[in-house]
Design a protein around this nucleic acid. Sequence first.
DNA 1: AATAATAATCGTTGATTTGACGTTTAATAT
DNA 2: ATATTAAACGTCAAATCAACGATTATTATT
Lengths: 236, 236
Amino acid sequence: MITYSEQTRVLVAVDCIIFGFDGEQLKILLIKRGFEPAKDQWSLMGGFVEANENLYGAAERILHQLTGLKDLYLEQLKAYGSPERDPIERTISVAYFALIDINKYKTQISDRYHAEWFLINDAPSLIFDHDLMVEEAKKRIRYKAALHPILFELLPKKFTIPQLQNLYEQVYNTKIDNRNFIRKVNSTDLLIKLSDKDKSSSKRGAFYYTLDKNKYKAKFQSFLNFIPNPEHLISM
Amino acid sequence: MITYSEQTRVLVAVDCIIFGFDGEQLKILLIKRGFEPAKDQWSLMGGFVEANENLYGAAERILHQLTGLKDLYLEQLKAYGSPERDPIERTISVAYFALIDINKYKTQISDRYHAEWFLINDAPSLIFDHDLMVEEAKKRIRYKAALHPILFELLPKKFTIPQLQNLYEQVYNTKIDNRNFIRKVNSTDLLIKLSDKDKSSSKRGAFYYTLDKNKYKAKFQSFLNFIPNPEHLISM
DNA sequence: AATAATAATCGTTGATTTGACGTTTAATAT
DNA sequence: ATATTAAACGTCAAATCAACGATTATTATT
């Protein structure tokens, strides 16, 4: 029987960078670690990969544990494997980022992890190399969202154009001309206008829209350009 | 003392998808495995991550072992972790892709690995999930090269415009209008025209060019568009 | 009933880029 | 002299772009 017996085995973990949008602000979900090392420090949600699951499955499980949600947008970011990244024992971590609508998130489930949403630009510093992971995840999202309509994954089923624009403005930390933005959004043909309005943030009220799922899938690969001169903003 | 003792440890490997260009054709470097399992089958070059090195360092080492080359373009593709991907024992593999100028490659070093260059569209099928890795690496290169000038990493120090165009045509498997291509290339201002010519492939001879390294670094992030309608070609 | 505030549409501008295509000139091996 | 490839220059209409002006719609507030 063949074995790889002379090789060292290491721990493999999955860590999740969870981005959320509540209709107003872009946030990230962090947990307060309940165990050593680095107990009581802020951290990404993570866990070890189990014997029978693949990496994506592990990320799904971990995400479900914390949020109670399934079928989220989830994409592998990168594997991190510096020998010193975990002080206790060498651990390779495969980072995944998820995009979720905060309104779907169930608080009660997260209580055991002491999870909290933080504004994307106002989050505490994290354990190990998690800050680096978050930075690289932000870059990746900017990069990808400049070309593909992934930001819709952050929005509720029904959303308004001002919410959508606000989301883009936060992701790219820039002001977007509203007239050009609407024109571009309409030209993608991805949205279906509903008959009811959101009157919470204005007197007139903004029409709700919903994503045309079929067109979304069909057009996912075709490049978008909601952001003027994205090459000035993106680096990765 | 804190430990993660109850967790299972697994093997972590690095596999390299090595793309090369010899001035005429785009190729991939494969090895014939000299050990079990899957002895004598074609495979990507890989190896286990050692105790004192990070993932990128492991990829560099493995690449150096096979090619004798250092300081190559090397980028992490993705981590692969299906439980069944290695029949002997669970192994997570972090795939890296490298871009190299085949002329720099030293044959004698590779002999112990029975390495061979294959045309990109005429390679044998590989062990484990290596075919999947190669497919995803090809996609990644197409995606990235549509936006960033990474294909220059495949070219020799001195190269001609016809060589460059040929390379793009092979990567995207398409014909490119030569007049528009030259105009676009010149407009990037990335190339320095040399005074000597390559007369091997034409009577007139084509001027050699070299990459302006400073401008290359400065402009790496700004999007290129050598490929007409890249959105028709790219998917990832 | 007037006002304020946000939402949404329509239109214009000139600049730039795009791809498709035509033409010409250059250099040199044969 | 000829064939062949390199390369530069030009044209053209279509499309896209960002920036900006103006208007209308809707409704809560006063």
